[in-house]
Design a protein around this nucleic acid. Structure first.
Lengths: 185, 185
DNA sequence: TAACGTATGTACAAATCTGTACATCGTAGC
DNA sequence: GCTACGATGTACAGATTTGTACATACGTTA
């Protein structure tokens, strides 16, 4: 019966996204999740552990989301590289889009050695490796370099989407990506 | 004798950069600046006003820094567009680099209507317009589109430099920028 | 029926947060 | 020397923070 734990992580994730980690208090998480405070501390040792669980969950969520989207899209490796940008456009158009929890973590915990910051870096490292695999399949000359460039574009698009409330930044980044990919094969 | 006000803004800016806005308390700003708390509230009505003053100051600081760097560099408009990326590399290599206060503001205050978020968006809008002017001087076909792409690259480079503790992300973005600029003229 | 694990609600501890009150000190101008 | 003003230090108010104590209730299982 880990229904309560699930509710806590989901509620916390939403609040962290909208208001940040430091600005979101335990009391608010408890109130909005409809769970008793003692239940929270029964499932998690501390607020930091709840944050870590929320990041972990978002990481898994994105992993499967990218997986299912790319397998559903199909097409050539090049098409799938570009499709990642379409997926980001979908994301930015969601009503509850408030940026990326991992970029947010790197901004609130600037020390690279901090667990939250480190996990955020690893999340994007995993994305980078996945794109490098696709780039290699697309016969790019330097797949790792291309993957790094594409992730930089995605991070830029996500940051700009939040900053300018601009849902089109991913299509804009996609145009740049197309030029890069076609130049790299 | 607004020496104290200056000291407060400088100290606050550094703390906001390293720890964020919500995580930085008034007491710490007061302690590290060596100024009495009442002096702070003599110069600023509230913490939010101090944050606003810090953002304002950083905006002016960057404006003059870009100005002096570009006039010192000289060269063609194309060279100066690329030089902006070199300036960012310089920035990332500073010891006290902890990301961008404006991107940080957009992450901690996700509501686009929030004054801090709005000011951050305006800061990058000013940069965008400046780059559009250079792009026009470089005879780019669509200078506004190019400027948007370049700002997206800069935002991506800055976010990635913080996330991955990677001081080379600006040179990486510069490579992409070079391709875009040469394709746009 | 009895026992056990989980969830609950309230109350609280201890620290920290923003902002204020107030008496005092130091200096610059008249 | 006197006045005015900015800066100081301390103490505090009131709210909020994370985390805990404890008695109670519910449901399942033995």
């Amino acid at each position: 019966m880990s229904d309560k734990r699930e509710q806590l992580v989901v509620t916390a994730l939403g609040l962290f996204l909208e208001h940040g980690y430091h600005a979101t208090g335990i009391d608010r998480i408890v109130a909005e999740s409809g769970v008793a405070k003692m239940t929270l501390y029964n499932h998690f040792e501390s607020k930091d552990e709840l944050i870590a669980a929320a990041l972990q969950r978002m990481d898994e969520q994105w992993s499967t989301r990218v997986d299912t989207y790319l397998t559903h899209i199909g097409g050539s490796p090049r098409d799938r590289l570009l499709a990642v940008f379409d997926l980001h456009t979908q994301w930015y158009c969601e009503d509850d889009f408030h940026g990326c929890v991992f970029l947010k973590a790197s901004h609130e915990y600037t020390d690279p050695a901090h667990p939250m910051h480190a996990f955020a870096a690893e999340h994007y490292q995993r994305l980078r490796e996945r794109l490098a695999g696709l780039a290699k399949a697309a016969k790019a000359k330097r797949p790792d370099t291309l993957a790094r460039q594409l992730v930089l574009l995605l991070i830029g698009a996500t940051s700009q989407a939040l900053l300018d409330d601009d849902r089109s930044s991913a299509t804009q980044a996609r145009e740049v990506a197309r030029v890069l990919i076609d130049a790299a094969v």
